[in-house]
């Protein structure tokens, strides 16, 4: 059985054993340690262009950008790290530090307690984390079910029944959370403003009237797109159109 797990892991991660990205990563980390932040950022980006990702990679890249005073790219990469691993405490901390340096501080719409709990719950893990959890819980559920079916004494039947219920509920929730996180990554588009000052327009044209001003590092949600323009909304509810080049999608 162990041999098969290793085989599956090997199939999953076989690309990571290619020598170049690993070497690049090591070199980038060394550059960062030597305070050559621009060079480090360049190397991390190179790993990304080779198609390799990791929450830690995005985290390191965010750090490199932050240290070279590029707040917009830093925030984008911290957000990406958190998408892959929502429980990453270091990434949340660094994101908070980076956010405190930006100009805009759009306030979050206050959420009801159950919304907050729901969000806190599904943010515990990324979609893959929840997927693995749900598989484990389903196995546990089936084990409890068999115990219930084949136990001969009443006490055992009772205990296994409660476990069966528990694993069923938690397993289903894990699946729902996995789907939720998956949707967040694939369909819920958020972006970070990358230019020092961006004016949101009332319609997708440069001649239309100005609505509000945003600064580098501000997080917006993309609602719609038309050509080189995107309709974006701010957490405080403001909606306007800005050009694609003034932001970077997370």
């Amino acid at each position: 059985m162990n041999r098969y797990i290793t085989l599956i892991l090997l199939l999953l991660f076989q690309h990571s054993f290619a020598a170049t990205p690993e070497e690049l990563l090591e070199e980038a980390n060394e550059a960062y340690t030597r305070s050559e932040y621009n060079y480090a950022a360049e190397l991390y980006e190179q790993i990304l262009t080779e198609g390799m990702v990791s929450a830690d990679l995005y985290y390191n890249l965010g750090n490199a950008y932050f240290k070279s005073n590029k707040l917009g790219p830093a925030i984008v990469n911290f957000e990406r790290a958190l998408r892959l691993r929502p429980s990453d405490e270091d990434a949340s901390h660094n994101l908070a530090v980076a956010r405190s340096r930006i100009v805009d501080s759009t306030e979050q719409r206050p959420q009801l307690f159950y919304e907050r709990w729901w969000k806190a719950a599904y943010s515990l893990q990324g979609s893959d984390g929840w997927a693995i959890t749900s598989i484990i819980l389903i196995i546990a559920f089936l084990a409890a079910t068999s115990a219930y079916l084949f136990s001969k004494t009443v006490v055992w039947k009772k205990v296994s029944f409660y476990f069966m219920l528990l694993f069923f509920i938690t397993g289903t929730l894990s699946l729902v959370f996995a789907q939720k996180q998956y949707n967040r990554i694939t369909s819920e588009k958020e972006a970070i403003i990358m230019q020092a000052r961006v004016t949101a327009k009332s319609s997708p044209s440069a001649q239309s009237s100005d609505l509000f001003l945003m600064h580098e590092g501000t997080k917006v949600t993309i609602r719609n797109g038309l050509g080189e323009w995107k309709e974006i909304s701010l957490p405080n509810g403001s909606v306007g159109w800005i050009k694609n080049e003034s932001m970077e999608i997370i």
């Binding site: 999953l12 991660f13 690309h15 990571s16 990205p21 690993e22 990563l25 980390n29 960062y32 790993i47 990304l48 198609g51 390799m52 990702v53 990791s54 830690d56 990679l57 985290y59 390191n60 750090n63 490199a64 932050f66 240290k67 270091d90 901390h93 660094n94 530090v97 980076a98 979609s127 893959d128 929840w130 997927a131 693995i132 996995a178 789907q179 996180q181 998956y182 990554i185």
Partner: peptide, 19 residues
């Protein structure tokens, strides 16, 4: 900000979501 991570970074191809 906190320091970068240097150990046990596992890279994997982008778009290979397990879920």
């Amino acid at each position: 900000i906190r320091f970068i991570r240097t150990d046990n970074i596992v890279l994997y191809p982008a778009g290979s979501a397990f879920y």
